[in-house]
Nucleic acid binder design. Structure first.
Lengths: 168, 168
DNA sequence: GAAAGATTGTTGTTGACGACAACAATTGCC
DNA sequence: GGCAATTGTTGTCGTCAACAACAATCTTTC
């Protein structure tokens, strides 16, 4: 956050008026980026920060973060998957997935069952409660996507998804 | 990492052959994403991971990470800036910038000078060594951008920059 | 059939990173 | 001059990725 011209900043009036401390004019408003502009990584990073924060805010009422959402979605679409499979598919460390599942299991959204085919692994399923919850999460996620459309434009969002389809 | 079809994975042969442990076929190769496809945030996250790793690898020989590069670039383009100004411009916590500058100052790339206009703040400048170093960093960064072009296509990269220009 | 090697889930450590809170020094406003 | 605000700094907390090590289990191989 503390972005630049992005969304509603914390300064309603341009110039910030007087009344507080130093800073003749609002500092760093016209700092040249120069070489930074034109770097794909920088733009993507800033956008990613924005989009994640909107996701977190939009799904805030149900307390679901992007990674949790992706885990639930994959399990919901592929019941019985092992932790290894989920981790591999989402590019998450399996060590990290352990904590994620601990949290989701405490909330009664996911269930770990000992697999009978491979007793090392756990078969992952959504609970009944998890199913209905995920349905709600998906509605909120769709709302979040509409925010993205409102931010960058419907056409541009579609373009973006097309360009980055190979990374999904 | 541990992406999917992204760059050179750690498995040269498709199917991974036998010779090791379990997994009849390489697990999680055809796991349905379904609902995850079509989420801008997910695609952007995966892309951002890829692009940062390529940046880190390409600038690995000089040991410069994306954030460090952005700090050096801004200071180089706007000598005399305060830490507050840099932090605000890049969306970095000023507390975080302290450590970043500590590191860059130890490496003799940046110099903190007590500002005479405002004795609370530090004026930031590149050292002579920092100038020449940054020139090299920029060449490597340009090489990184070429990797991005090779990955998603020249046209698509330009599209991306245009779409996300508002976040820069 | 048994040993050797690999995989799965788990725990723990490390380091980068963002969000906050508190503090001394300094500045601007009244 | 006094008070509020800003700047740089330090420290804490929580998230997250990258590793390493371990027990249990499976596959391969002899």
């Amino acid at each position: 956050m503390t972005a630049n011209a992005v969304q509603a900043d914390s300064r309603p009036s341009p110039r910030k008026r007087a009344g507080n401390g130093a800073a003749p004019r609002d500092v760093a408003d016209d700092v040249g980026l120069d070489a930074l502009v034109g770097h794909a990584g920088y733009a993507v990073r800033r956008f990613q920060i924005w989009i994640f924060q909107d996701f977190i805010k939009t799904l805030g009422e149900v307390d679901i973060r992007p990674t949790q959402y992706s885990v639930l979605t994959v399990i919901g679409a592929n019941p019985g998957l092992s932790q290894m499979a989920v981790a591999k598919r989402l590019g998450i460390e399996r060590a990290r997935l352990v904590h994620l599942l601990d949290s989701l299991e405490q909330r009664k959204l996911v269930k770990r069952t000992k697999s009978k085919e491979d007793r090392r692994s756990h078969a992952l399923h959504l609970t009944a409660q998890g199913e209905t919850a995920l349905a709600k999460f998906k509605r909120l996620a769709a709302e979040h996507e509409r925010h993205v459309e409102a931010k960058i434009g419907k056409e541009n969002r579609a373009q973006l998804l097309r360009i980055l389809a190979g990374f999904t």
